[in-house]
Nucleic acid binder design. Structure first.
Lengths: 195, 195
DNA sequence: TTTCTTAATTAGCTTTTGTTAAGTGGGTTT
DNA sequence: AAACCCACTTAACAAAAGCTAATTAAGAAA
């Protein structure tokens, strides 16, 4: 617990000790084993999670019933069924632990309400949102700028830890390609390249 | 001007009249002719724009110096060089009017500061952010779920107005494909389809 | 009007990805 | 150990996208 507080302090240095302890009293610590879910598609839900340890992913289903990993979240990133929170709809995605993980989860309406009295809560939420937005934009940029093979290279360069920890099939759907293609790409890269 | 106020009231019904007039006094109305820019890549900048009329796009350059349209913004959507605002870096993208447009622009640090005293400002900003985030996520989902041809179909279905107003080459890069491919896709769709 | 320019289409060919199916290897269960 | 499961790889072929270049179309400029 102490350890988590330190991590949060480091990531959000403007939070005072009293705010942090308020925060911790509002949050619920949740442990997930590999494969366990934080929220399932179709459920209604109003919690937002801050990842303290481990690796999660959000996935949706395509028309063939295959799982498509839309986003990964690792330490100090937040993850939530955003459309569900913002539009009060059932979640369209499932959030699942890729490996055993620890989250702190917060009730979204409560956080927004408290933010009105506690500027620091608001700031925290906005910072998290802005970070999430930047990640999403970067991801869109990758899709528009780079072809599959280059996307894999960029992923390798920027988030190498993902390649180590997530199975290939998750990575493939994350990159928008099929697993067989990714396997081929890996081979092209490892063997002298081209042709 | 009255017209803009009405639009804002409709889109953000919780804003009181006094807040709206404060807001309008802080905002600067800016007109852009087709092809004119709101911000250019490399500039530093701290304004966020709310589109009141028209159509804008954000584009970046790929390694071949080609413009890649990352996002379109139309009426009542906000657009800004987000990484620039959030990280105080020079903008990596250019915001340009696809057709003649009207914006109201706000100084981002001022807005964040005012939000601390005026909860409505905060709410407005958070709503805008959340909306922008949802759009970005939807876009990532499109890339991961759908192949180029399907992406075009989805774009047609969801944002048909874009197809009418934006030139094909912008749409192609927005879809992550090259203009020649998009032209072919169009043909495949219009003529009886397949082969 | 003619000329220039630029966007979009079309065509031919190359490269990459999708798809299906058959191996391969590691780990688990019995 | 054998049988099984699953992820990943490999292969072969089909389908789609990339690339280059030529053609057409439409608008702006002379």
């Amino acid at each position: 617990m102490e350890e988590f507080i330190l991590k949060i302090k480091k990531a959000f240095p403007y939070l005072t000790d009293t705010t942090i302890s308020k925060l911790m009293s509002l949050g619920e610590v949740q442990l997930l084993q590999e494969g366990e879910t934080f929220i399932k598609q179709g459920e209604r839900h109003n919690r937002i999670a801050l990842v303290m340890q481990g690796l999660l992913r959000n996935y949706i289903m395509n028309d063939n019933g295959e799982q498509i990993t839309v986003v990964f979240a690792t330490e100090l990133q937040s993850i939530a069924p955003y459309k569900c929170l913002f539009l009060q709809q059932p979640a369209s995605e499932t959030t699942e632990a890729v490996k055993s993980s620890v989250l702190i989860t917060f009730d979204y309406p409560t956080m927004r309400k408290l933010g009105e009295e506690e500027p620091q809560f608001n700031k925290l939420y906005m910072d998290a949102l802005e970070k999430t937005l930047m990640n999403a934009i970067e991801r869109v940029e990758d899709f528009t700028i780079a072809k599959p093979e280059e996307r894999y290279q960029r992923l390798l360069a920027k988030h190498g830890y993902l390649i180590e920890q997530a199975p290939l099939k998750y990575l493939a759907s994350y990159l928008g390609i099929n697993p067989v293609s990714l396997s081929r790409i890996r081979k092209r890269i490892s063997t002298g390249k081209r042709k």
